[in-house]
């Protein structure tokens, strides 16, 4: 077989957004009130989707491309610095 035999294996590469832009699933978006935030990073710790990082200003920054809007961050925030705001239609 001069054409060669393609070995087609189900090998997948690590990739952000492996299931697409999951931010589109969101009904409500978390919004950080930096006046109330004490940078305890519990929101980061409990975020199931790993979409919270440290922004340039040192406060939590949410990656809305992938944030599914579960609201766990708002729920665990000890100072209620994260508010869930309804996405516009």
């Amino acid at each position: 077989m001069g054409l060669g035999v393609p070995i087609i294996v189900p090998v997948s590469k690590p990739s952000k957004g492996a299931a697409g832009k999951t931010g589109l699933w969101r009904v409500e978006r978390p919004v950080v009130n930096e006046d109330k935030c004490i940078k305890c990073w519990l929101c980061w710790l409990y975020c199931p989707e790993d979409v919270i990082s440290e922004g340039d200003n040192g406060f939590p920054k949410i990656d809305y491309t992938f944030c599914k809007g579960c609201g766990v961050c708002a729920d665990v925030c000890p100072t209620k610095a994260i508010q869930m705001v309804r996405e516009e239609e």
């Binding site: 690590p14 990739s15 952000k16 957004g17 492996a18 299931a19 697409g20 832009k21 999951t22 699933w25 710790l45 409990y46 975020c47 199931p48 989707e49 790993d50 979409v51 990656d63 491309t65 992938f66 944030c67 599914k68 809007g69 579960c70 609201g71 766990v72």
Partner: peptide, 22 residues
């Protein structure tokens, strides 16, 4: 950094994902 990348097929608020992340 951990071994979980955002934007997976997990349901919102998935405990299994949270556990794996940590």
């Amino acid at each position: 950094p951990g071994s979980y990348l955002p934007g997976s097929a997990a349901c919102p608020g998935c405990g299994a994902t949270l556990a794996f992340r940590i």
